[in-house]
Simulated assay, not measured.
Amino acid sequence: MNIQEQLEKAKELLKEQDYEEAQKIYNELYQNMDEATADEKADILAGMGDCLREQLYFEEAIPYYERALELDPIHKRSLAGIADSYRGLKDWNKALHYWFEIVRLNPQDFLIYTRIADAYRKLGDFEQSEKYYLLAIELNPRNKFALMGLGDLYYKNKKYNQALEYWKKLLDVNPKFINILTMIGNIYRNWKQYDKAIDYYQRALEIDRNNFYALYGIADSLRGKRRFRDAIKYWKKILDKEPDNDRILTRLGDSYIRIGKYAEASAIYNKVLENSTNKYALIGLIRIEVEQKHYYKAAQLCEQYLEQFPSDVRVALLLAKLYEDNGDTEKSLGVYERYQSMFSGRKDFDSKLASTTLEHFKSYIDEYTENEFDDE
């Protein structure tokens, strides 16, 4: 078998991801490189680099590419290989150097423009990243990698309308990008456009009926629509797979409170507290007692909560109000003394703030639990 035939065979093995066998052929060729032409030597060296790079040995791969580029400075396979090796090492600036060399040789290479944009995104350079994503999309409007990357760039920079524009174009290319479906759902959910959000989450569930983010998104959207009984069904679907997920358990507890099932909610919160000090579970238990006007029990739970989370001024105010309503002025003032610095040095409680603490506690819980779960 001559050198060209061996090179072709090794290249096919690389495509088949049989890196061990490919490397054997390249090693044999490498040992006998004196017999090869300059072009063949560059291909052998690039092949050695490719085998190492594909196995994530980036540092070991780079010297082979460098030697190939000494023989042929515009050897595209080596330029691409060394750039991807530096990408693997997260050395974005060095990777950019070689990618720019590739597009200098081929200005129509939209995939390389996409990688350039990705690198600038990693470097936090919004303007350059946006520029090269748009250039890649101009060259190929159906470039899914650029559409995905540009949408992500806009999303991370809170430019949600632009993110939607390009993610929807991506779904026109491939409607089964499940993470994009859920991210679009998240945007609509954050905008409180719950019906639109649910539509995208349901499309995700058609692909994967157990997708966590889609189930969570639907449940939380139903919660936003105040359809708490329906939300409960979806919280339970998640818990079928993740029965010990505290965040989902506390969400389920919240839904039970909303429909007046306090015993069920209490059982859930206490289950969570068996394994951890969870502020949302404690808040839930406080709320149950407040809802039922069990103010003494609520006060005890507030004291327990503040032992763990002493800087929560609203719970401190709630505690003071609970004592005040129970006629225990001394304890109420004691709370003020304990948390005096939180109340801007006032000598007594602001009567309006204190009197509305219970009234607004439910809305406070709503605000408090909004950030209970971090979106994907």
Rank of each mutant, 00 (worst) to 15 (best):
Y216M: 04
A263F: 14
G284Y: 08
E206N: 10
R229L: 14
Y154N: 14
G88M: 04
L111I: 08
I259C: 07
K352Y: 11
V103I: 15
H75L: 02
E359V: 14
Q304G: 09
D254H: 13
D195C: 06
M148F: 10
G49P: 01
L285V: 05
T357D: 03
H97S: 06
Y65K: 05
P141W: 04
K122E: 15
S332Y: 00
T114D: 00
K352I: 15
Y336F: 12
C51G: 08
E206M: 12
L317V: 03
S363P: 14
A36E: 02
H75Y: 14
L56E: 12
E359G: 15
Q17Y: 09
L353V: 11
I82D: 12
L29Y: 02
E291A: 07
E324M: 01
P63T: 01
R227F: 08
S355W: 01
K169D: 10
L89Q: 11
S129G: 08
S276V: 09
L252C: 14
L150F: 04
Y256Q: 03
T329R: 09
L56N: 13
R104A: 13
R209P: 07
R287D: 11
I3H: 03
Q17K: 13
R115P: 04
D91M: 10
L7K: 06
I232H: 03
E70Y: 04
E264C: 06
F212E: 03
F309H: 06
A61K: 00
E21H: 13
T250Q: 14
I288Q: 08
K321W: 03
I288N: 08
R67I: 06
G88N: 04
T37M: 05
Q55L: 08
K94I: 00
K176D: 15
R338A: 05
N270T: 06
M148C: 07
E28S: 15
G327T: 02
D254I: 11
E264S: 09
T114S: 11
Y154A: 10
Y280Q: 00
K176P: 00
Q300A: 07
L318N: 02
I365A: 04
N211Q: 05
A320R: 00
K122W: 14
D172Q: 15
E130A: 09
E376R: 11
V103W: 05
K9P: 04
I187G: 03
D246S: 15
R209W: 06
D199G: 05
S351R: 14
Y305S: 05
G124W: 09
Y323E: 01
N140T: 10
E59L: 12
K169P: 00
R121A: 08
L134F: 04
A163Q: 08
Q108P: 00
L252S: 12
G151V: 11
L79Y: 04
D18R: 07
V290F: 03
E242Q: 11
R223T: 12
A80I: 13
L111C: 04
D254R: 14
I62L: 05
E66K: 13
T329Y: 08
R229K: 11
N278E: 00
